[in-house]
Design a protein around this nucleic acid. Structure first.
Lengths: 221, 221
DNA sequence: CCACCAATACTTGTATACAAGTTTATATAG
DNA sequence: CTATATAAACTTGTATACAAGTATTGGTGG
């Protein structure tokens, strides 16, 4: 993931970002610059770079001279992340469907097949990784790195919900697989509008569980 | 503009960002942390925060242990910025058109009227400010600050071209005004699809001058 | 036992010192 | 005069020191 950080900061960012979106580090938890500094054996300078980046992504909040905290989940922020993701993902898939590139189609077919296997094995982590890869493959066709980057960063907010949802409602393998197939079919039919419509529905899935997740995990909000 | 920077860094960022998009600081120009430090009478620490932010926006590039430079214009980066902007702006205007909110409509009408006056006075700066305000007013309706922020930051790449275009081809007042009116009319008719279509055409205007600008100012690319 | 106050530890913000690499300038050899 | 090599100046990356404000904890008075 393109983050434009220095070598010392980059692994720290990658680790913290992953820990936050996987809910290993919980919303509201305190992050001390000094502790992180000791933990990663680097000075506060690169740590602060990482914190600044996470702040700009809305994943942590700094209360001045008091502490740094992992952001709580917020319906508003999640809704907005979904909105941004939908906007860019639909634009990307429209572009793909208009061009109908064989290479991308083949790659997507392979990913869907792997997803079918991962679903059969009930391998949720693998399935989610492949879901990301499906979207990344579409983005790669456009060559728009920054667009892909924005999606990845916004998706962080959605992934925290998705990981809670996974424990609650399971992997939803069939729904996701069906949606991916619908998207791919629309691409094959060179129908940008329908591809965009299916992509929109796909990205809106997260919203259907949002209220229930909030009810179950009020302390994370 | 929401930048999540500390009080010491924020004015430095605002100044540099404005200078870069207005082409007061030219593509390729060197930015020394020490010089900026002296210029703004702050230490290198906040300066480096600002640089990091500008790097993440793609407006400056750091060559390690060699120097920091204002990014050159690039067709690829500008095309991508337009793509991202179009995706989010069309999504926003769709939402507005679906809701047809009276307050937003009135505000847009006022802005268009002010633009008519600015055009009559050939007041390009004012006209551009009002153009931004038109789009910001639509974004405000959604309440999605981050979406608005992404648009603003991506637009920086487009504004550098726009400012070159202004000198070359003038303010294009009539075209822009007509497009704004078309967008607003579609909103009034509660026609999201048409509103999005007009918005798409509006944001694509920049692409029509891109090649000519590159031809005239090859050294900036 | 509770309330309040003071001191201490902890937090982030900023400035500075040092490290390591690049570029430029200067002097010297041919 | 040119080319080359050496040294000096300059660049960013990282670590540390200091400043200023917050939170916590312990003790004291009631």
């Amino acid at each position: 993931m393109a983050v434009n950080l220095n070598p010392t900061s980059e692994p720290v960012f990658t680790y913290l970002h992953e820990q936050i979106i996987s809910m290993q580090i919980l919303p509201g938890q305190k992050l001390s610059e000094n502790s992180l500094s000791k933990q990663f054996q680097v000075s506060r300078t690169p740590i602060r770079e990482v914190i600044a980046k996470l702040v700009s992504l809305g994943l942590v909040e700094v209360k001045v001279k008091s502490g740094t905290f992992v952001s709580k989940l917020s319906i508003e922020k999640i809704t907005e992340a979904q909105f941004i993701r939908e906007a860019i993902e639909t634009a990307i898939v429209s572009k793909v469907a208009s061009a109908k590139p064989q290479k991308t189609i083949v790659e997507c077919e392979e990913i869907i097949e792997q997803q079918r296997i991962a679903a059969a094995e009930n391998h949720a982590i693998k399935f989610q990784y492949l879901d990301d890869k499906f979207h990344q493959t579409l983005a790669d066709f456009t060559g728009f790195d920054r667009a892909a980057s924005i999606i990845q960063f916004e998706k962080a907010h959605l992934d925290r919900v998705r990981n809670l949802s996974l424990k609650e409602f399971g992997g939803q393998y069939d729904r996701v697989l069906t949606q991916h197939k619908q998207i791919l079919n629309a691409i094959k039919q060179q129908n940008p509008q329908q591809a965009a419509e299916y992509m929109a529905l796909h990205t809106r899935e997260i919203l259907t569980v949002l209220e229930q997740i909030k009810a179950k995990h009020a302390d994370y909000f």
